[in-house]
Deep mutational scan, measured.
Amino acid sequence: EADPRLIESLSQMLSMGFSDEGGWLTRLLQTKNYDIGAALDTIQYSKHPPPL
């Protein structure tokens, strides 16, 4: 049985245009305790590393 928090967070992320191919988004949301903001921060950080 999927956690209702996961279903809600995942559906919101999917509606933003993200995909869960391979389950990466599910794993990220689980790691971030279903916090969409924290997940988005992680995605943003990985796409744009800080300048040295």
Rank of each mutant, 00 (worst) to 15 (best):
E1M: 13
E1Q: 00
E1W: 02
A2V: 15
A2P: 09
A2I: 14
D3M: 03
D3H: 06
D3E: 06
D3N: 07
D3R: 02
D3F: 03
P4L: 09
P4V: 06
P4A: 08
R5E: 08
R5L: 06
R5N: 08
L6Y: 10
L6N: 02
L6P: 03
I7R: 12
I7C: 08
E8Y: 11
E8H: 10
E8I: 09
E8T: 12
E8G: 06
S9W: 03
L10Y: 08
L10A: 00
L10S: 02
L10H: 04
L10V: 06
L10R: 09
L10P: 00
S11L: 05
S11H: 06
S11K: 15
S11V: 06
S11D: 08
S11P: 01
Q12D: 07
M13W: 00
M13L: 10
M13Y: 03
M13S: 01
L14I: 09
L14Q: 09
L14P: 01
S15M: 14
S15C: 08
S15Y: 09
S15R: 12
S15T: 14
S15Q: 15
S15E: 15
S15H: 15
M16T: 02
G17N: 08
G17T: 02
G17K: 02
F18V: 05
F18I: 02
F18A: 04
F18P: 01
F18L: 07
F18D: 09
S19L: 07
S19T: 15
S19R: 12
S19E: 14
S19K: 11
S19M: 10
S19V: 14
D20Y: 00
D20K: 00
D20P: 00
D20C: 01
D20F: 02
D20Q: 00
D20A: 00
E21H: 07
E21A: 07
E21S: 09
G22M: 01
G22E: 11
G23I: 00
G23L: 03
G23Y: 00
W24I: 12
W24M: 10
W24V: 08
W24Q: 11
L25Q: 02
L25F: 01
L25A: 03
L25V: 08
T26A: 06
T26G: 05
T26E: 03
T26Q: 05
T26L: 01
T26H: 02
R27G: 08
R27N: 11
R27I: 07
R27W: 05
R27K: 15
R27P: 07
L28W: 02
L28Y: 04
L28R: 03
L29V: 03
Q30S: 13
Q30T: 15
Q30V: 12
T31P: 02
T31W: 06
K32C: 10
K32R: 07
K32W: 04
K32M: 10
K32P: 02
N33C: 05
Y34P: 03
Y34V: 04
Y34Q: 04
Y34C: 13
D35R: 03
D35G: 01
D35L: 01
D35E: 08
D35M: 01
D35H: 06
I36A: 08
I36L: 10
I36S: 07
I36K: 05
G37I: 05
G37V: 10
G37L: 09
G37T: 11
A38R: 11
A38E: 11
A38S: 09
A39L: 02
A39S: 11
L40M: 13
L40P: 04
L40Y: 06
L40S: 01
L40T: 07
L40Q: 05
D41R: 11
D41L: 07
T42R: 06
T42S: 14
T42H: 15
T42Y: 07
T42K: 06
I43F: 06
I43R: 02
I43C: 06
Q44I: 07
Q44L: 10
Q44R: 14
Q44A: 10
Q44T: 14
Q44M: 09
Y45F: 13
Y45Q: 15
Y45R: 15
S46N: 12
S46W: 10
K47T: 10
K47A: 10
K47V: 10
K47M: 09
H48E: 12
H48S: 13
H48A: 14
H48W: 12
P49D: 15
P49T: 13
P49N: 12
P49Q: 14
P49R: 11
P50E: 14
P51E: 13
P51F: 10
P51H: 14
P51Q: 11
L52K: 15
L52F: 08
L52M: 12
